[in-house]
Amino acid sequence: MSLVSVPLPSFILHSRPYKETSALVDFFTPEGRLRAVLRGARGKSGALARPFVPLEAEFRGRSELKNVSRLEAAGIPNLLASEALFSGLYLNELLIRLLPAEVPHPDLFEHYRATLPLLAAGRPLEPLLRAFEWRLLDELGYGFALDRDIVGQSVAPQGLYRLLPDAGLEPVGELQPGLFHGADLLAMAEADWSAPGALAAAKRLMRQALAPHLGGRPLVSRELFMNRKEPPRD
Rank of each mutant, 00 (worst) to 15 (best):
M1P: 09
S2R: 14
L8A: 09
P9K: 02
S15V: 03
P17D: 05
Y18G: 08
E20H: 08
T21F: 00
L24C: 07
L24M: 15
F28Y: 14
E31S: 12
G32C: 13
R33G: 07
R35S: 07
R35I: 04
R35Q: 06
A36V: 05
V37G: 04
R39N: 13
R39H: 14
G40I: 13
R42Y: 07
G43I: 06
S45Y: 06
S45M: 14
G46L: 07
A47L: 14
P51D: 05
P51A: 10
P51K: 07
P54K: 08
E56Y: 02
A57Q: 00
E58S: 06
F59N: 00
R60K: 06
R60H: 10
G61R: 07
S63I: 00
E64N: 11
K66Y: 02
K66V: 02
V68K: 01
E72W: 03
E72M: 06
E72P: 04
A73M: 12
A74N: 14
G75P: 07
G75K: 12
G75I: 06
G75T: 04
I76D: 11
N78R: 15
L79N: 10
L80K: 08
L80P: 11
A81H: 14
S82P: 02
L85Q: 06
S87C: 15
S87G: 11
S87F: 09
G88V: 10
G88S: 09
L89G: 03
Y90W: 12
L94M: 06
L95Y: 01
I96C: 09
L98T: 03
P100T: 07
A101Q: 12
E102K: 01
P104F: 02
H105R: 10
F109V: 00
F109W: 06
Y112M: 01
Y112D: 04
A114S: 13
A114W: 02
L119S: 05
L119V: 08
A120V: 12
A121T: 09
A121K: 13
L125V: 15
L125K: 10
L125P: 09
A131Y: 01
W134I: 08
L140T: 04
L140P: 05
Y142G: 02
F144A: 03
L146M: 00
L146P: 00
R148I: 00
R148F: 03
I150P: 02
G152S: 10
G152D: 09
V155Q: 10
A156W: 13
Q158T: 15
Q158S: 14
D166Y: 13
A167C: 11
L169G: 10
L169E: 11
P171K: 10
G173H: 04
Q176T: 13
Q176G: 07
L179T: 11
L179E: 12
G182Q: 04
D184Q: 14
D184P: 01
A187L: 07
A191D: 12
W193S: 07
A195H: 14
A200E: 13
A201S: 15
K203R: 14
R204Y: 06
L210C: 02
G216P: 04
L219D: 05
L219Y: 06
S221I: 03
E223Y: 10
L224S: 03
L224F: 12
F225C: 09
R228W: 13
K229T: 02
P231A: 10
P232F: 01
D234Q: 10
D234W: 07
